[in-house]
């Protein structure tokens, strides 16, 4: 499943994921954003994996805020934008 969101004033945020037993699995975030350190990408994946398929945007954003330390710097991307891309992936058919 694939979802894209162009963050207003920011960058393209893309999520690819699968569902296993109604939970997020194999989550991959990508896009032309900036993220420091780059290992934060794996932190984001780990935080999203296992979340229920019906988690809403606010819940997903909150999970990401909790997982990311204050050391992580984001430019052109945010927990809220990632949450939108996840919801879009979950709402769209695989070929969308």
């Amino acid at each position: 499943m694939h979802g894209e969101y162009k963050m207003p004033g920011g960058k393209l945020v893309v999520i690819d994921l699968d569902l296993h037993d109604d939970r997020l699995a194999n989550v991959q975030l990508s896009g032309d954003f900036f993220l420091e350190p780059d290992s934060a990408l794996q932190t984001i994946h780990a935080a999203l994996i296992g979340q229920p398929a019906d988690a809403d945007e606010a819940t997903l954003a909150s999970v990401l805020h909790d997982a990311l330390s204050s050391e992580v710097m984001m430019y052109g991307v945010s927990p809220e934008a990632i949450a939108v891309a996840v919801r879009r992936a979950l709402h769209r058919s695989p070929e969308a």
Binding site: V14, L29, G31, D32, F33, L35, D38, L41
Partner: peptide, 9 residues
């Protein structure tokens, strides 16, 4: 490509 871009996308 950028550090976080998907190769196939």
């Amino acid at each position: 490509i950028g550090r976080f871009q998907s190769l196939r996308n």
